[in-house]
Write a protein that binds this DNA or RNA. Structure first.
Lengths: 259, 259
DNA sequence: TAATATGTATTACAATATAATACAAAATGT
DNA sequence: ACATTTTGTATTATATTGTAATACATATTA
């Protein structure tokens, strides 16, 4: 939850739209299906408001209604937005064929992530053998400081920015091995800057090694990262470094978006 | 464009929300980035309205603004919605591991599509070697009568429904070989009903064979389809029928969602 | 450099969204 | 099976919010 910074209430701001969108946004991993009262509670709207907005979204086809339980869930229409985004993101188009080729070559799960606010978001996911469900869904967010993709993107920023982010940005514990020590995270980022890639162990999933390399524009601005997950039972860090890293780094390097 | 059926203007309908969403929806394959005036024109809103809604969406982070050109495009936030949907769709979760396994086994592009209105929409896409960009993006819609997935889903409906849909639903020409003859489409659907799967040739992409099998609930209602694309240069219809079809059909059959 | 198109800002007005309230229909517990 | 609570639906008078007109600023084009 961001602490409700009320966007200045000028006449160019339509707060009805904001409220409606709050309802679209309320559904998540642990809120798959909600009744009217729950929606009201979760969005901070009163019952009447929730009623009106939910009704509107239902009529427009954004929310499916279970006639028996009278609860609502996101409809297929949500995916129209994914399509619009993916089609408008040149980097995705540019990267896609190379990511497919890479996944075929390595026979491993390959992802592309982009920074957003203080997190990274998965934009492309090509599942390998035995990819967990959560790891195959686009739109997933992970705190930038926790994800190897996030760290390697940060590693291309200047010192001041890095220090600032490492101190300010949020962390989230995913496994018993998730690093919660900001000093260690800084260290990890500095190693990534040195080497040009970032490796991590059991940070997000308990049985995975992660390897990430940055995608930068010509002027060096980091705009995304390629990221590979390896099962810990079949790979050591050393093997991964020798056999996988060069391919990830090279593929990332070969993708150079304009601007 | 649907012919603007005004949802009844009762007090439970918030038209501001509708207008705002019209703007989110306006971006598409051929409208990647739009200026204020264009948005006004495309959505049918007047300049003032467009200004207010665009401003709101920009402040909320849904639209990125190019500071130089002052044009807008969908932001990463669009993908939050994809995540919410995918996570709430049980069928996707149920199917995903089997689709991954299938793609590994066949080394081919595997998709899952769901019917929506008069089209089908791709919900899961696991790209194989040399998958085109358009064929790797979720949220893509294709007229149900044109897509093999759509036909195989229809084939599980009763006769009356099928005849009605075949006569009423829209067609779209993608290639010189796209079937525009509704009689032939009906024939194709009837064959699919007989055989339990649907094959098509060059309907959507000029160099592809498509194979689709239906996913049905226990009571026989078709709710989705699995779909495989093969390059025409490497496969004949006969080969495909022998080597690929059984796997697609079996995987589809093995996925039986509740309700 | 002028002319045109496009984006931004301001304001007075009224239409639209609002909150309160009442009613109906389920769900829950005894 | 009944009473009680919770949740969903419908109605209405009121003023808050969104509106359209207009003016100004900034790019783009000729």
């Amino acid at each position: 939850m961001t602490d409700r910074v009320k966007p200045r209430q000028n006449t160019l701001y339509v707060s009805s739209l904001e409220k409606g969108l709050r309802i679209l946004e309320v559904f998540s991993e642990d809120k798959l299906e909600l009744g009217l009262t729950e929606i009201a509670r979760e969005t901070g709207l009163d019952k009447s408001a929730a009623q009106r907005f939910v009704n509107t979204l239902h009529q427009l086809g954004y929310l499916d209604k279970n006639a028996e339980t009278r609860r609502y869930r996101p409809s297929l229409k949500y995916l129209d937005m994914a399509y619009a985004y993916l089609w408008s993101d040149n980097l995705v188009q540019l990267a896609m064929p190379r990511l497919i080729e890479l996944s075929r070559q390595l026979q491993q799960t390959i992802n592309m992530a982009r920074p957003i606010e203080q997190e990274i978001m998965y934009v492309v996911r090509i599942p390998g053998y035995r990819t967990s469900y959560g790891a195959s869904v686009i739109g997933r967010r992970v705190p930038a400081l926790t994800a190897s993709s996030g760290r390697v993107i940060l590693s291309r920023q200047d010192d001041a920015t890095i220090h600032n982010c490492v101190n300010e940005w949020p962390l989230k514990r995913y496994t018993p091995w998730t690093t919660m020590d900001r000093g260690q995270i800084l260290e990890s980022i500095m190693v990534a800057r040195e080497k040009g890639y970032c490796m991590s162990l059991r940070e997000v999933l308990p049985d995975e090694i992660n390897i990430a390399a940055p995608i930068c524009t010509l002027d060096g601005t980091p705009v995304a990262a390629i990221h590979c997950s390896l099962p810990i039972i079949r790979w050591t860090m050393e093997q991964a470094e020798q056999e996988i890293v060069p391919h990830i780094v090279e593929t990332a390097r070969s993708i150079s978006p304009p601007r």
